[in-house]
């Protein structure tokens, strides 16, 4: 049995015939304490997996919402080492919810792949998604992560041809993340029929769970995706809540929990139907 929390969580979801809810927030936006409380609130609301954004000065794949979150976090002094400390703190009260770090390669490269992988696993991180690291460039990183039991999550996109889909599925672990729109985070909304076509093709090529993200803003949209995918990833809309309520911690936690609960309920209702 894997020590990693990601396969364990997806096995539980499959057994319960539920789609997973993956929530993204940026670590340190606007400070570490708020992020910790937000992670806990999202889990209370029903998040199955927490994606934690590692802030980067040049977030090329992100829309304005997550760019601003990244800037706030960096202004607050967040670093990759502090993100790992934050995960350690989260683990003192929650040892079952998988945590995936999502970000850009340079901070990881700067720490060193081996040193990062070792420290991340020790902190309680289960997987890493580096947006700007396609499989073609990931050999060294992949080996270091594999040695330490850190899952490497890869993206698939509408522009990924058949050959790439096969190659990436062969290399991926944890789950595969389908970017459902051609664009940056939080900007466009996806066409559910097109996404369903891609996901069903994908299902024929991998036994890994398939998560769908980018542009999921409402419980209704999450419910539609939950009908045919293994997990739904929601990010920018949560980051907007943090942006609006950063100065009222109790209200923020309440809203994040409620939002996750609404998403969770809509997704479960869809699966039950």
């Amino acid at each position: 049995m894997s020590q990693n929390r990601i396969p364990r969580r997806f096995a539980e979801l499959a057994a319960a015939r539920r789609a997973g809810l993956i929530t993204f927030i940026t670590a340190g936006d606007p400070d570490a304490d708020t992020t910790l409380a937000s992670m806990q609130a999202l889990v209370r609301g029903g998040a199955d997996l927490i994606e934690l954004g590692v802030p980067f000065s040049d977030p090329m794949a992100d829309g304005p919402t997550i760019q601003r979150a990244s800037e706030r976090a960096l202004e607050g002094g967040m670093t990759l080492a502090r993100v790992l400390e934050l995960v350690s703190r989260f683990r003192t009260t929650d040892n079952t919810t998988p945590v995936v770090l999502m970000g850009y390669l340079n901070p990881i490269e700067c720490m060193g792949y081996e040193r990062f992988a070792e420290r991340a696993v020790a902190a309680g991180v289960d997987g890493v998604l580096t947006v700007d690291l396609p499989p073609e460039e990931s050999h060294d990183c992949h080996e270091a992560f594999a040695r330490h039991g850190l899952e490497q999550i890869y993206l698939l996109a509408p522009t990924s041809g058949q050959e790439r889909v096969r190659a990436i599925c062969a290399r991926a672990s944890g789950f595969v993340y389908y970017v459902s729109v051609k664009g940056v985070t939080g900007q466009k909304t996806s066409d559910a029929d097109e996404v369903q076509r891609f996901v069903s093709t994908l299902k024929g090529q991998t036994t890994l769970p398939v998560g769908v993200g980018f542009g999921v803003r409402t419980p209704e949209a999450a419910a539609v995706l939950a009908g045919f995918s293994d997990a739904v990833i929601v990010g920018s809309v949560l980051v907007e809540l943090i942006e609006q309520h950063a100065r009222e911690p109790a209200e923020l936690a309440r809203r994040l929990e409620a939002f996750a609960r609404d998403m969770r309920a809509a997704m479960d209702a869809r699966r039950a139907a």
Partner: peptide, 20 residues
């Protein structure tokens, strides 16, 4: 063939841009 000049260069972009 993969766009490297010694250890430099390469294609470090998100998956959506690999096809284009």
């Amino acid at each position: 063939a993969r766009g490297h000049f010694g250890p430099y260069g390469g294609k470090f972009v998100s998956e959506t841009l690999m096809g284009p």
